[in-house]
């Protein structure tokens, strides 16, 4: 599965366009991370727990994106975009979307 945020792939033609595919994941942090985060809110600096949390949930959203694209028979996802929103305190939604295509 080729995932790219470009719209064209060199030397390969798009033979079939399958429309938009998407994947999303909502994660909340656990209490230990929250305590560390409130300490870091006083001292400043990187919130390592949050960085990990968000990259994990991004991985999961991308897995779902891939699974959806595979289920409709695509072999590549082009023009992939990421989007983040926070739905509740401490929980973040990661949303990934792109165009599923069949490359020759």
């Amino acid at each position: 599965m080729l995932i790219s945020n470009l719209e064209i792939i060199p030397d390969r033609k798009v033979v079939k366009h399958l429309g938009l595919v998407q994947g999303s994941s909502v994660r909340a942090k656990h209490v230990g991370r929250d305590i560390m985060a409130s300490l870091k809110n006083i001292l400043g600096g990187e919130l390592v727990g949050y960085t990990e949390l968000l990259s994990e949930s991004r991985e999961e959203a991308m897995d779902r994106l891939k699974a959806q694209a595979e289920s409709i028979g695509a072999n590549a996802i082009l023009n992939v975009r990421f989007s983040t929103s926070s739905v509740a305190q401490g929980a973040a939604e990661i949303y990934v979307y792109g165009t599923a295509v069949v490359l020759e």
Partner: peptide
């Protein structure tokens, strides 16, 4: 050959 790369970081300000 092309591949998607990304980097993320979360930073907080101090009090």
């Amino acid at each position: 050959q092309q591949t998607l790369v990304m980097g993320n970081v979360t930073i907080s300000v101090d009090y």
